[in-house]
Each structure stands twice: as C-alpha cells, then as structure tokens.
Simulated assay, not measured.
Amino acid sequence: MDLNKPASESQPQSFKGHMATATVLPDRVVFKRSPLARLGGNRPGEVLLSDVLAINAVKPTRWVNGHMHLQTAADAGPLRIASRETQRMVAGNHRAIMFAWGRRETFKRFVAAVQGARRRSGRGCEPVTTQRLFVIERWLWSLAGW
C-alpha cells in the first residue's frame, strides 16, 4: 500500500489532530477523541456535510494551535479560546479539531479533504479564516522582542 498516493474520493480519509482523529467520509465527518480528551469533558462527534453552514479554520502557528470547526445551526457562531460554555470553546466543541504546529501539513490536507467532500456533495463552502488568534500571536512576538 502506497501512503504517498492520494486516497480515492469515495474512501474514508483520516487525519490526526491534537488528541483527536477526524475521518472524512463522502457525506460526513466523524471526530474521535483520545481517552485523555474524553476525561477532560470532550466527546466524539459526527457532522453531516449537508448540515454545515460554515467552515471556520485557523492555521496553526508556532505560538498558537490551529483548529477547524464545522459550524452548524446548533452553534452560536465561531468558537473562542476561552468561554464559560464548553461548547463555545475550541477545545470543548465536538465539531472541531485542533492542530499543533507540527501537524500543519495534516491541517492543510484536512481542509482540502473537507472542501472536496463538500464540493462533491454539491454544497461548496470555502473556509473562513478568523484573524483574532493572530492578534495574540503578534502580541506574543512583540513580548519576545521580534
């Protein structure tokens, strides 16, 4: 089996994120959490691509983990770093997955796979990159003197 070849469009594609694995199927995305993440209150989830209203993506950087959130009607909007409600946080939403800097290529492949699955299902949706996390990154760089 050649792992360098791209997977067929109809085959499931799995992507390892931070304490979670996302599997992109032709009609849905399934999120599986590690036992440690489940101890922290996060749970596995499944999202039908037809229910996705927006794709909120933040690229991982050296300072801040990135994430991808498949926003549905059940969400109140884009996720936040901290909130009193677990479902409003990146790390607590079961329709989101985080990626560290070391998995930035996996993040790019995951975004492309979800976009491709949405396109094939007839509901194209470009990711919306939120900029608010990059403000924090710039502030951290300024503290470091760069």
Rank of each mutant, 00 (worst) to 15 (best):
V52S: 01
A54M: 09
I55C: 13
I55Q: 05
I55R: 07
I55L: 15
A57Q: 01
A57T: 03
V58Y: 07
K59W: 02
K59F: 02
P60S: 06
R62D: 08
R62E: 10
V64G: 00
N65G: 09
G66M: 00
H67K: 08
H69S: 08
L70K: 07
L70A: 05
Q71H: 09
Q71D: 03
T72K: 05
T72I: 07
A73M: 10
A74G: 04
D75H: 12
G77K: 09
P78G: 10
P78A: 08
L79Y: 06
I81Y: 10
A82R: 14
S83F: 03
T86I: 10
T86Q: 13
Q87C: 07
Q87L: 05
R88H: 14
R88G: 04
A91T: 11
G92T: 05
N93A: 10
N93H: 14
H94F: 03
H94V: 03
R95G: 00
A96G: 08
A96Q: 05
I97S: 05
I97M: 15
F99N: 01
W101V: 05
G102Y: 12
G102M: 13
R103K: 15
R104N: 10
T106L: 06
T106K: 06
F107A: 11
F107G: 14
K108V: 11
K108F: 10
K108S: 11
K108E: 13
K108C: 04
V111T: 04
A112Y: 02
A112W: 02
A113M: 01
A113W: 02
A113F: 00
V114W: 00
